[in-house]
Design a protein around this nucleic acid. Structure first.
Length: 285
DNA sequence: GCCAGATTTCCTGGTT
DNA sequence: GAACCAGGAAATCTGG
């Protein structure tokens, strides 16, 4: 009701934002982010596409991808059980996976099996995207679908490794849900949280083309370099073409109360991770 | 259908 | 004056 009028009111700001961006960004809903962020495409998976050649780092990335894909709580998987490289991962049996990841084990096992199987086709360059694509065939726009980010489409949330002893909470309030010790699906209706999205951009410097940068890595202080571009990226992820930095920053300010972020007085576009933000410290990687 | 969590949207006023 | 910051208030969306 009110939305209709307010939408009209927001048109000028949105238009001005889009005019600052490359035209491909404006071709919503299915733009090619690679034109905006050269080098993002196919960097992660194409070279080491076969799981047996993965590093430990890539194994963790794959795990994180699986969590994202299946909306599985990170707490469900003891990451320390997967402190292995691709070769060791591939040698794990179904039972090994079940032992290492409990009820999530079979999901991981089948995913990996598919990866290995696909990689056996000579001449066919494989990426996890292919597996994901082969499941539901109804993704209109890759950029809005979290489950297909890893390959061609940049999604910083894919980088959230967080192989930490205490799993990355979706929110600091997850303490309240202590009555669900083996929760498979967390209450995270919108997928990755904004602060995690921001964190993961920061944790992917090689895939972060000057959007956000660390001001003080140790203290968790960071600064937006391209505030509107980040907002647009966030908007793409949320399938919301009218996202602006103004709105994004409002959401950021809500994190102050929850101590996910701390105020950095007197500095524009500068934020700091708070005590309830997890997974951003180098020691947590 | 209700509820809660996490934004999203709009707004006013202040600061840089 | 533009861009940003701070927060209040209400709406929206989604999973439980």
């Amino acid at each position: 009701m009110v939305r209709h009028t307010t939408c009209i009111m927001s048109i000028p700001s949105t238009a001005s934002i889009e005019s600052q961006l490359p035209t491909t960004w404006s071709s919503y809903p299915c733009s090619d982010i690679s034109t905006v962020m050269p080098g993002y495409t196919s960097r992660l998976w194409s070279q080491d596409s076969q799981p047996q050649y993965w590093s430990k780092y890539q194994v963790w990335e794959w795990l994180q991808q699986m969590l994202d894909m299946h909306q599985i709580d990170a707490a469900s998987i003891p990451f320390q059980n997967f402190d292995v490289d691709g070769r060791q991962l591939c040698s794990m049996t179904y039972q090994d996976f079940t032992r290492a990841a409990g009820t999530v084990g079979p999901i991981l096992y089948h995913s990996l099996t598919e990866l290995k199987w696909s990689g056996q086709y000579p001449g066919v360059e494989f990426s996890p995207l292919d597996v994901i694509k082969s499941e539901p065939d109804d993704f209109p726009c890759p950029f809005t679908e979290p489950s297909i980010y890893p390959s061609d489409i940049y999604d910083p949330s894919f980088q959230s490794l967080a192989p930490v002893a205490s799993p990355t909470p979706s929110s600091p309030d997850t303490n309240r849900s202590h009555s669900r010790p083996h929760q498979v699906k967390k209450h995270n209706p919108r997928g990755t949280h904004l602060w995690e999205f921001i964190r993961d951009i920061l944790l992917s410097p090689e895939r972060n083309p000057g959007l956000i940068k660390w001001e003080d890595r140790t203290d968790g202080v960071f600064r937006f370099l391209k505030s509107e571009a980040v907002a647009q990226l966030w908007g793409k992820k949320k399938n919301n073409s009218s996202m602006t930095y103004e709105k994004l920053s409002r959401a950021m300010r809500y994190y102050y109360k929850r101590e996910i972020l701390e105020r950095v007085d007197g500095r524009r576009l500068v934020y700091k991770f708070g005590r309830n933000a997890r997974g951003w410290r180098e020691s947590e990687k």
